[in-house]
Design a binder for these strands. Structure first.
Length: 592
RNA sequence: UGGGGCGUCGCCAAGCGGUAAGGCACUGGGUUUUGAUCUCAGCAUGCGCAGGUUCGAAUCCUGCCGCCCCAGCCA
């Protein structure tokens, strides 16, 4: 995959439910919407092409972490393999040791596995084929279809011609097979300096498709230690040459890649037609994914990390798989997203709302509910017995009894969120607590605010309220209390740090300006807000990293691996709850 | 003035000659001890434009227009 690339893709038959065809293949029933690639495969199976087998592959280059665009490709390739009872290989396209490393190889494996896919024994490296690839090159030379060229990179560019003018033959184009074989052997033996020679396919310097103007297939690279092959090679094959042959060697039937490789297909086919190979996979191109408010170019993601704009590849604001995992996005939500966006050949930019909807939908169903106060305001219940602590039994999920219950303590002093109290209601739709008004404590009693205590600056620092003992699990007598707010008993609550995340960029297309500089100017300065005085209900005291919850009325949160200096837990806000109040507030403000 | 790809609702996306699926978003109603969830309803006489073929065209033909990709010894 490329440097600027976004890979993309969709669909998978995992646990997602979407409308669409229900295909029953031996052993499994899935509901995965069809797409043009699946239609092609259906036809191939109908005509018994490849003996009805389906073998795909996900071929990342280990030069960075996987991002949401790769998720599309992973779901497409592994999803198809699953649905057609085929296999999907994980193959690292590691032909450029200069940019690749073992950390990336590891992270890619972790991410694919986390997404829910298993390549079984089908784990390969293009570098596994360096020896056979070398032999194929010799075969090309013997057929008079490749030659060693001494032109410099710059000269080669001049000889290549332009988009509208044909190129011209290299003066080295007609070397004999013997001479080429000898020269190529010396290239491998390390007798030539970097850049002094390359091996080129001999095709057609006047081809309208520039990829066919005698493309380079081997270059010399001394002094780099390849993460898999060490220093055993000083010549490395190029992508176009390596990919098709690797596919063939592995018996891939359908080689799915992104649109920009469509121009390379003639080359893909040329190598396979020219050489004696095991099989001829079919390359099919689909469009990459663009997600609003994010960038998906590995080059730029790398610079976000290296320039310190984020804290690492797994920063919760990053559109990387690792970042989304740490942010708390469930793998199933990402898979669902990949199914929903579809697979086509048209350019597309998906709105963040689609991904967010997938995350909320999944979390709403699976996240246990808890109460947590992010911006605490002390409340003393004046008529509540001093020293008394009640344990209230509350449901972990309002719509799913199977998720059980938990106990939450209630006492004379509690904390509520500062945003849930206003001295005077700003409009008639406001239904939280106001001075002199009533509100229900979620899962608890109805309280009335009698008094506000302020500091010298006039800030409200404490509320004095009374509770109605008859309102636990019951409506109050003769009046309606519409508002419900969350709270935590002050003495029993545990302190925590909560990180509120927002989009990394404040421009829908930070990538739009093609120059690599611009995107940084669109970084959202408020993409992370850290709250350090949060109070969580006791049940949140023992949680594992990665465990997620809905903090009622606030959003979905996930326990982070970090811990504060005083050993308090840290939670990341995955996403807020849908907020129709924000809209009402705006309208109310306009209409009074 | 080269080659390749693409244009169906704000964003995705079905459709493959028989009279515009679905999702997200949005709007309005109902339920609700999360302003959440859930639920009901609405949301393209129209498929880049213009002609043509046909009883019938988003689907076929012709011609335009627009957008994306390609001149790495990157993938």
């Amino acid at each position: 995959m490329s440097d600027n690339d976004t890979l993309l893709t969709t669909t998978s038959g995992l646990t997602t439910t979407t409308s669409g065809l229900t295909t029953t293949t031996p052993g499994l029933t899935t509901t995965t919407p069809g797409n043009f690639i699946r239609h092609i495969i259906d036809d191939d199976i109908a005509t018994n092409k490849n003996d009805g087998k389906v073998v795909t592959r996900f071929p990342p280059e280990p030069n960075g972490y996987l991002h949401i665009g790769h998720a599309k490709s992973i779901c497409l390739n592994f999803g198809i393999a699953e649905d057609y009872n085929g296999t999907c290989h994980l193959r690292f396209d590691d032909t450029n040791p200069h940019k690749e490393n073992a950390e990336f190889v590891q992270s890619i494996q972790d991410d694919v596995r986390w997404l829910g896919y298993d390549w079984g024994k089908q784990h390969f490296f293009a570098s596994d084929y360096f020896e056979p690839l070398y032999d194929f090159a010799v075969q090309l030379i013997e057929k008079g279809k490749a030659y060693v060229c001494d032109l410099s990179a710059e000269e080669m560019r001049k000889y290549r011609g332009t988009l509208t003018e044909p190129g011209k033959d290299s003066p080295y184009r007609n070397r004999s097979a013997e001479e080429n074989r000898e020269l190529f052997a010396k290239m491998r033996a390390g007798e030539f300096a970097d850049g002094s020679k390359v091996l080129r396919a001999k095709i057609d310097m006047a081809a309208p498709n520039i990829n066919l103007r005698d493309p380079t297939i081997y270059r010399i690279r001394h002094g780099v230690v390849h993460h898999q092959t060490g220093e055993s090679w000083c010549i490395y094959p190029m992508y176009d040459y390596t990919h098709c042959l690797s596919d063939s060697l592995e018996g891939i039937t359908h080689s799915l890649c992104t649109l920009e490789f469509a121009d390379h297909r003639p080359l893909y086919d040329w190598f396979l037609n020219t050489l004696e190979t095991p099989c001829h996979p079919q390359q099919i191109e689909f469009s990459r994914l663009s997600l609003q408010y994010t960038i998906a170019s590995k080059r730029k993601l790398t610079s976000l990390v290296n320039d310190g704009h984020v804290e690492g590849w797994d920063d919760p604001r990053m559109p990387t798989i690792a970042g989304m995992r740490r942010r708390g996005y469930p793998a199933a939500a990402i898979r669902d997203f990949c199914v929903r966006i579809g697979v086509t050949k048209s350019d597309n930019t998906v709105e963040m709302g689609v991904l967010e909807n997938c995350v909320r939908e999944n979390l709403n169903e699976h996240a246990p509910r808890r109460m947590a106060v992010l911006n605490p305001l002390k409340v003393v219940i004046t008529n509540y017995p001093e020293g008394q602590v009640e344990q209230l039994t509350v449901a972990n999920h309002p719509q799913n009894e199977d998720m059980g219950t938990r106990e939450i303590p209630m006492s004379r002093e509690i904390v509520i969120d500062q945003n849930d109290f206003l001295q005077v209601a700003p409009n008639k739709k406001f239904k939280r607590l106001v001075h002199g008004g009533e509100v229900r404590l979620r899962n608890g009693y109805v309280i009335r605010c009698d008094e506000m205590i302020k500091n010298e600056q006039g800030d409200i620092i404490e509320l004095r309220c009374r509770y109605d003992p008859a309102t636990l699990g019951a409506s109050p007598e003769g009046r309606k209390v519409k508002g419900v707010i969350h709270w935590v008993s002050a003495a029993q609550g545990i302190s925590a740090e909560v990180r509120l995340y927002d989009r990394l960029f404040n421009h829908p297309a930070p990538d739009a300006a093609k120059d690599d500089q611009d995107y940084a100017a669109h970084l959202n300065p408020e993409s992370m807000l850290t709250l350090t005085r949060c109070v969580l209900e006791p049940a949140l005291g023992e949680t594992e990293d990665g465990e997620y919850f809905q903090f009622e009325r606030e959003g979905y949160f996930c326990k982070d691996q970090a811990v504060t200096a005083d050993h308090s837990p840290v939670f990341n806000r995955t996403i807020t709850l849908r907020d129709s109040w924000a809209k009402i507030e705006k309208q109310a403000a306009q209409s009074g």
